[in-house]
Design a protein around this nucleic acid. Structure first.
Lengths: 226, 226
DNA sequence: GCATTTCCTGAACAATTGGTCAGGAAATTG
DNA sequence: CAATTTCCTGACCAATTGTTCAGGAAATGC
């Protein structure tokens, strides 16, 4: 019920230096979080059991409780870590920037992030599927603010004729998100339908180029020279 | 493990006429499946409990077992019903058709489907998030065939200059799927970010228009007159 | 070295899980 | 009507769930 995640002042404890006090804690917590990420991403919060996470982390179940207090505590810590990483990538743009360049960079960054941390993307997806009980504050707070800022800039660009009038700023952001996250969340489907074992770097590049082309031309923009 | 779903010959029992033998079964099964859809969509297969479904259906837990034998049996039946409905919408197209019209219709149909059955879309998403253990046969069989057919047609269009050369047929299909399903799977996020309680018909129309514009212009096509 | 904090875990906890089954009610059939 | 099939469920089962806790090992501080 307490949707605390994403509110300000939640700075993660600074990772203690190697050998210093609390170093063991930092190492083990990270280890457990990684295991939890895989389990919760695949089976959701309710479906993921502490035992399964403990097995993946090769630790006794009680050890997870020792560090995180409860299942919910572990899940919250995991979401916080994920959103913190996410936020680190929400780069700044201004009205002065070139729309085509901004969008291209945005798509590439998001695609790279999602392809590098597919588990994190799936975890996020499963939380949203539940109705985002713990992420309401994050969605309605910092993330919404971020979206509003970008949307305002897109709006400006549009009124200045630098973006096609038919572009809905927020819908554009959703489109980029959905198109990129699809390759993490629906990876199993993509692989099954393309007959691949996994996506190659070449695949990643073709996907990125295709998405950039589609989005840019929908915005009435030319692909900027590399 | 047995990924049977989606293979041919799985015709659902024809719903018996009102009052005929098995009518009770048909009615109750449908009732239970609807309840199960909501629970599994939100919490996944492992996370969804028979008790929760029973509560939603206002039936004793044993009754679900009576009709479906096991939790897995219920889940499989639910996935089968979902995929059957899905398949009913995979309409036919030919090379002779007009690309712009086909794509427009495709987007509208998919968006309407997904907005009308958001639970089904989320159920599907959660199954894929797990790695699609039960849908492998469906994905690699009938769905892949469907995708290959469309992709071949897009390819033809492209070689005839009726589609931009930069369009990757399969990636185009994925783009349409992801962009539309986003409004079901990530509904909680969309609502939180737009500050809405729910999406209106007007929202639906604006979304559809925007997506059609983006996709069509990325394909080098004009929006067809209505 | 000793004292203190941190780390760790096996055993036990009540609650919930999916599943079985006997026994009976309700409906359909002849 | 009686016979038969379908429908239904409460009680019980073993297994698993998240959590508590006592007691001790390991690391750290001095």
């Amino acid at each position: 019920m307490s949707d605390i995640i994403g509110e300000p002042g939640r700075a993660d404890a600074v990772t203690p230096a190697e050998g210093a006090a609390g170093a063991i804690r930092a190492r083990n917590e990270a280890h457990i979080l990684t295991a939890a990420e895989g389990v919760f991403a695949a089976h959701g919060y309710r479906g993921g059991s502490l035992q399964a996470i403990a097995d993946a982390a090769e630790l006794p179940r009680s050890n997870l409780l020792y560090y995180f207090g409860s299942k919910r505590g572990l899940y919250v810590a995991l979401l916080e870590r994920t959103m913190a990483r996410w936020n680190a990538l929400l780069d700044e743009i201004t009205v002065e920037d070139d729309p085509a360049t901004v969008l291209t960079r945005f798509i590439h960054a998001k695609l790279a992030l999602v392809r590098r941390h597919p588990q994190a993307s799936r975890l996020f997806a499963s939380e949203i599927l539940q109705g985002a009980p713990l992420l309401q504050a994050y969605l309605r707070g910092p993330l919404r603010e971020w979206v509003d800022t970008r949307a305002a800039i897109f709006e400006r660009w549009r009124s200045e004729g630098r973006l096609d009038v038919r572009v809905e700023p927020r819908a554009l952001i959703f489109l980029i998100w959905s198109a990129t996250q699809h390759y993490a969340d629906y990876e199993a489907q993509v692989l099954a339908l393309t007959g691949r074992e996994q996506l190659s770097d070449a695949d990643d590049r073709r996907i990125a180029d295709f998405l950039c082309h589609m989005i840019l031309s929908g915005c009435g923009l030319q692909t900027p020279g590399t």
